[in-house]
Design a protein around this nucleic acid. Structure first.
Lengths: 245, 245
DNA sequence: TAGTGGTCTAGACCACGTT
DNA sequence: ACGTGGTCTAGACCACTAC
């Protein structure tokens, strides 16, 4: 690997591109540890900050994973998840060699904020159930899901009797609450990891993340659920099937 | 604005959060110019690199726009585009006060690469039409679209007679080539701006971008078009309507 | 010419995980 | 204790834009 200091291409980009090539060539393979930042510094005659900027770029793209105090590793390929089915996380990711589970961070019944009430088309005096879960695949935290279920007239109180580390919310809604979900409206944008996300998802501050918002409706077109989710953009590819209508 | 050097929260994040607050408070409004990096340095007693890191974070989220040699400005709200309709860019963004147009970067008939041929289910000897366009909204470049149209047996040769700075590809396919599009399969991921994107879209290197890939099929389920697009993640929100099937 | 953001350095210190 | 990545500095130089 050589650096061309005459080039108009910034040094950090030249470094990033070289490492990218090695990943595509499979000179560096999934799981391999990269030489440390300091090694690159000496080898290329470049400063620490410049090497860091190069490798951080790759980390943001999900090509590489940085572990503080350990090293930098070539990442596994991204996970593809369908946007198009309402089966939720558990259903979407059931495939061999991939174990999915959840960690419940918050689970309680209460009253909605003005914002949530509006989205569920209920009042602030009605009941909602908040279920906040970390979503894991093979011990990696890949998403944080914060769901608010429209529990007007306590009709879905049954939900509180279940354990959502093991059970699927959609399945309980369907089988125990007789909810037939119709459609859902979703938005997807990119933002960077906040302090809260940094703490709870163990993701570096400022890393680009997918932010999804979804309102799910039953077949009577009544809003049942509002969810805000954050997915790791370095691990996820979303897929969708579009129609001409 | 004050910096707490005792805090475990990095200085650059404290700076970013303070500016974020000012944007949400509307102390700083859409279009306003921020104080320059150097002003923040002096005011906060912090180095250039640290201030830059803070403001770059906001730029990556699309809250702020940096213009070299000019200054940093509060951004307009993001644009929402539906994933769910196959009407394409022109159709999606037709709304009052928003003028959309395209700049053609490449438009020619030829033979596909092995990769493109496979996706269109044709051979490398068949004909494809490549149409590469910059997509603009009110003079801003918001996307780069690189489309390959399956022109096997030269059946859609008519396409070459049109001007796609003005006309819509989907409309020509429908009206002039009698193509009835059925469904399309799309994937969405996040990656960072390459050198090519930096040059053609006038976007800073390494900025997170949406990368979309789409294969569109006619109602006989024959692949008609393969498109790779790059959208500015700081300007776009995608929306979709999901069904239980 | 003056001011802006973008890149880069050489060195410092920290927090973390492994040994 | 050692090596890792993460943060920060003080200063340098560049390319770009506006005046």
């Amino acid at each position: 690997m050589r650096i061309n200091t005459e080039s108009t291409v910034p040094v950090y980009l030249q470094v990033a591109n070289e490492i990218k090539k090695n990943i595509k060539d499979e000179t560096l393979k999934s799981g391999d540890m990269l030489p440390s930042d300091r090694v690159y510094c000496e080898e290329l005659g470049v400063s620490h900050m410049t090497v860091k900027k190069a490798i951080d770029l790759l980390a943001n793209e999900g090509l590489v994973i940085r572990k503080k105090g350990v090293g930098t590793f070539i990442a596994e390929p991204k996970i593809t998840q369908s946007l198009f089915t309402l089966t939720g996380f558990t259903g979407d990711n059931k495939s061999p060699g991939r174990e999915t589970y959840s960690k419940v961070l918050n689970f309680k019944e209460g009253h909605p904020s003005a914002d949530i009430a509006k989205k569920l088309m209920i009042t602030e005096k009605d009941s909602v159930i908040n279920l906040k879960r970390l979503r894991m695949i093979n011990d990696d935290i890949v998403a944080l899901e914060d769901a608010y279920i429209n529990n007007k007239n306590k009709r879905y109180q049954e939900i509180m009797n279940h354990d959502f580390e093991r059970e699927s919310l959609y399945q309980i809604l369907k089988e125990k609450c007789n909810v037939e979900l119709g459609l859902a409206k979703e938005t997807i944008e990119v933002s960077s990891a906040t302090e809260e996300i940094n703490m709870q998802m163990e993701v570096p501050l400022g890393k680009p993340m997918f932010y999804l918002k979804r309102i799910s409706y039953n077949i009577e077109e009544e809003p049942i659920e509002y969810v805000e989710s954050v997915y790791r953009a370095d691990k996820y590819i979303f897929s969708a099937v579009l129609t001409t209508q």
